[in-house]
């Protein structure tokens, strides 16, 4: 175990939506990146930390889950949408950080869908979340054919790519501007602290870090 003590802990954070809210939460748990992290011109992906035994990597949200599941990073922050989509057996999500709230919903064109759900056993959905989507429709007895897109899902119905979309919704403004309405909420989402299962069990530093995040979360809830 002397070997684990000498290794750097890697903390993975997602680019984009959650990051601004996550930084203060991380700071309170003692995870503070070097100043280069905030420098927009800096192209590095890996940053030193105030604590000498830790580094921070900044990757896409979906990749945060993959890095942590494989144990390439021990700890990370990511939305529960990503956790649910991958359903990795090696991921623990021990702390709900109560930030990055939004929801994952089914949306359809406002003027009505040419193929209503009621009389279809098969339908096509454009989404970034094919697993959650097909599981959701399976529960309704419908086989969903998912078209995986990486962004701009809202264009799909108007261009005839798919009749509906499953996407993140926070204010609903993007849907509205693209002539879509939210039909059904699949799940509520918030950001979670995630850790690698083996790292939590074999590296005491990971457990200590989880404890710090958890203590802060409990304080906030009180």
């Amino acid at each position: 175990m002397s070997e684990t003590a000498n290794r750097l802990l890697t903390f993975a954070v997602p680019k984009g939506r959650i990051l601004d809210e996550a930084l203060p939460v991380m700071a309170r748990a003692g995870v503070v990146p070097e100043s280069a992290f905030h420098d927009k011109a800096d192209r590095s992906l890996s940053f030193a930390c105030e604590a000498a035994d830790m580094r921070i990597i900044r990757v896409r949200a979906f990749d945060v889950a993959t890095f942590v599941a494989f144990g390439a990073a021990q700890v990370g922050i990511v939305g529960s949408d990503v956790i649910e989509e991958f359903n990795y057996s090696e991921l623990y999500a021990p702390v709900d950080l109560d930030i990055g709230h939004c929801r994952l919903s089914v949306a359809e064109p406002a003027e009505g869908n040419p193929a209503p759900l009621g009389n279809a056993s098969h339908l096509r959905v454009a989404t970034k979340y094919p697993n959650i989507t097909s599981r959701h429709f399976e529960r309704q007895g419908v086989q969903a054919e998912c078209v995986k897109l990486n962004g701009a899902m809202e264009l799909a119905p108007s261009l005839g790519l798919a009749g509906r979309i499953v996407d993140l919704v926070s204010t609903g403004r993007t849907l509205q501007q693209n002539g879509l309405v939210e039909k059904e909420r699949i799940m509520d989402i918030s950001a979670r602290l995630i850790v690698n299962r083996v790292a939590l069990k074999t590296d005491p530093r990971v457990a200590a870090l989880v404890e710090r995040f958890r203590a802060n979360a409990v304080k906030d809830a009180a």
Binding site: L91, Y92, P94, R192
Partner: peptide, 12 residues
């Protein structure tokens, strides 16, 4: 409950 315990997901 087992599934969420398994994922150690307090929120879930």
């Amino acid at each position: 409950v087992r599934r969420e315990l398994d994922a150690k997901d307090a929120g879930g």
